[in-house]
Computed example of a mutant assay.
Amino acid sequence: MMTIHETEAGAADVEEGLVRNDQAPNAYIVSGEWPSAELSPDAPIGAHVGQEIARRLKAAMETRELTHRGLAERSGLGWRTVGRVLLGDVYPDVATLARLEQALDIEIYPTRWHRQLQQGSSES
């Protein structure tokens, strides 16, 4: 997975599985274990979305009694890719999400997640 973005200077910048200048989703953990860990209050929305994707993916795999390799076979992805998404090491790209959703026949991407995060922060 490669993400291409422009730096502040305008030059193209490529980082494997990362978004802009954000760190990997799991880099924002303040306590607990991924994917149920508490994230830093300043964690970008992408880290929260990555965490929810990992939660949903993990739950679906447990329900179906699938291993990383089993899901990789079903989805046509590499088992390392599946593992990196589950561990929060990368932000999965759209093609990866589509393959995982198709393989598991569920929605993994948390639509309208930004609204839930906004509601949660306004209640604090």
Results as ranks from 00 to 15, higher is better:
residue 59 A to C: 00
residue 99 R to L: 10
residue 110 P to F: 00
residue 40 S to M: 11
residue 116 Q to E: 09
residue 30 V to I: 11
residue 78 G to Q: 12
residue 17 G to P: 01
residue 84 R to Q: 15
residue 70 G to N: 03
residue 115 R to E: 11
residue 9 A to P: 03
residue 48 H to L: 15
residue 4 I to M: 01
residue 41 P to L: 06
residue 15 E to W: 01
residue 101 E to P: 08
residue 64 R to I: 03
residue 63 T to S: 07
residue 93 D to V: 11
residue 58 K to D: 08
residue 94 V to S: 15
residue 52 E to P: 08
residue 86 L to V: 10
residue 95 A to L: 13
residue 7 T to W: 00
residue 82 V to G: 09
residue 67 T to F: 08
residue 9 A to Y: 00
residue 48 H to E: 15
residue 96 T to N: 09
residue 10 G to E: 02
residue 22 D to G: 03
residue 46 G to E: 09
residue 119 Q to A: 14
residue 96 T to P: 15
residue 46 G to Q: 14
residue 40 S to K: 13
residue 21 N to G: 13
residue 63 T to V: 02
residue 83 G to W: 05
residue 73 E to S: 01
residue 88 G to I: 06
residue 110 P to G: 09
residue 5 H to Q: 10
residue 14 V to F: 05
residue 112 R to H: 12
residue 54 A to M: 05
residue 23 Q to G: 15
residue 80 R to G: 09
residue 52 E to R: 11
residue 51 Q to C: 04
residue 11 A to F: 01
residue 23 Q to L: 15
residue 14 V to A: 13
residue 80 R to H: 12
residue 71 L to E: 11
residue 100 L to R: 09
residue 49 V to D: 03
residue 39 L to K: 04
residue 31 S to F: 06
residue 37 A to F: 01
residue 83 G to I: 07
residue 37 A to Y: 06
residue 91 Y to H: 12
residue 2 M to G: 09
residue 62 E to W: 01
residue 29 I to E: 01
residue 35 P to I: 04
residue 110 P to I: 05
residue 86 L to I: 06
residue 41 P to V: 02
residue 116 Q to N: 07
residue 66 L to A: 00
residue 119 Q to L: 12
residue 103 A to D: 13
residue 48 H to Q: 11
residue 16 E to G: 10
residue 27 A to Y: 11
residue 48 H to V: 10
residue 76 G to Y: 13
residue 89 D to G: 13
residue 80 R to K: 15
residue 57 L to T: 08
residue 58 K to S: 08
residue 112 R to C: 03
residue 43 A to Q: 07
residue 115 R to S: 06
residue 42 D to N: 14
residue 12 A to T: 03
residue 124 S to R: 14
residue 107 E to N: 06
residue 60 A to D: 04
residue 115 R to F: 09
residue 79 W to M: 12
residue 63 T to P: 00
residue 2 M to S: 05
residue 27 A to F: 08
residue 106 I to S: 00
residue 7 T to P: 01
residue 75 S to E: 12
residue 115 R to P: 00
residue 46 G to F: 04
